[in-house]
Nucleic acid binder design. Structure first.
Lengths: 135, 135
DNA sequence: TTTATATACGACTAAATCAGTCTTATTTAT
DNA sequence: ATAAATAAGACTGATTTAGTCGTATATAAA
């Protein structure tokens, strides 16, 4: 319960690696996978998600790889989470397509509103932490 | 990801119900289950967990049930979580019997320390919210 | 122009966790 | 005695998560 997915862990690790890289070449999925013993395919997907969210720019082909688009202090952990996870809500009824009215409990469960506040505070924790802070 | 378990949701609902009850009789698992359309056996387990954690006192037999031991503003959501969940950590390596040294990644994953801080802040959110605040 | 090295991406499978059920024992008011 | 309640462990089914496989496409460099 309340656990981050492996995908998000790998996303944090990959983002951190990209932020620290100043070796001249673009960082690759292979490099990150080997460096931290993460399954290659999973890092690859994470990096593709980063590209879609415009956190990084990708370069295809030989000598290709990824580079960060913004400086690490301008990227928050919530940006990274949103790039790789659709659902990071504390309850089902806060996920898209759900609402008070889809609640299966009689007259809703009565704790939805306070939990929305909890959700807001937890998101805030990740919002307030920048990539720079985890280097 | 980051979702509360149903058990914890039911625990919040049950605790809230107990806090609001001033009907003269003890609240029972059956009553709570029917009131919110929660599976009886699950509420029953939650309430048994509450008893073990001394959040409530239980009364067995006919006319039995449960009553809160403390006032709602003296019970935090983290108390409730701890009563029903063994693991509420954001990463596996923060759960009991795990540590930096059991990390499967080379030279640990490098993000453990910042995540410990995140964990602390998330626990703080639940610590700072009392049962009274969700009534 | 071929080859090696990369990203892109969807489909699939295996493993782990979670939710819910079943069963039995014990306690106690009436 | 009986009914109503807690106590608790074992089991099953459903869902989610983690990881793999396969194929297509792009590009630098020999």
């Amino acid at each position: 319960m309340l656990k981050l997915s492996k995908k998000t862990e790998y996303a944090f690790m990959a983002a951190r690696h990209l932020a620290l890289n100043n070796s001249g070449h673009y960082s690759t999925a292979k490099e990150i996978a080997e460096n931290y013993r993460i399954p290659y395919q999973l890092v690859a997907k994470v990096l593709q998600n980063f590209t879609k969210s415009e956190i990084v720019t990708s370069f295809q082909g030989a000598k290709g790889g990824y580079k960060l688009n913004r400086s690490p202090d301008n990227i928050s952990l919530i940006d990274i989470i949103k790039a790789v996870e659709h659902n990071y809500q504390v309850t089902e009824c806060m996920q898209q397509n759900n609402s008070r009215s889809t609640c299966s409990h009689l007259d809703c469960c009565k704790i939805r509103d306070p939990l929305i506040e909890i959700q807001r505070k937890i998101e805030n924790v990740f919002e307030q932490t920048s990539l720079k802070q985890i280097l």
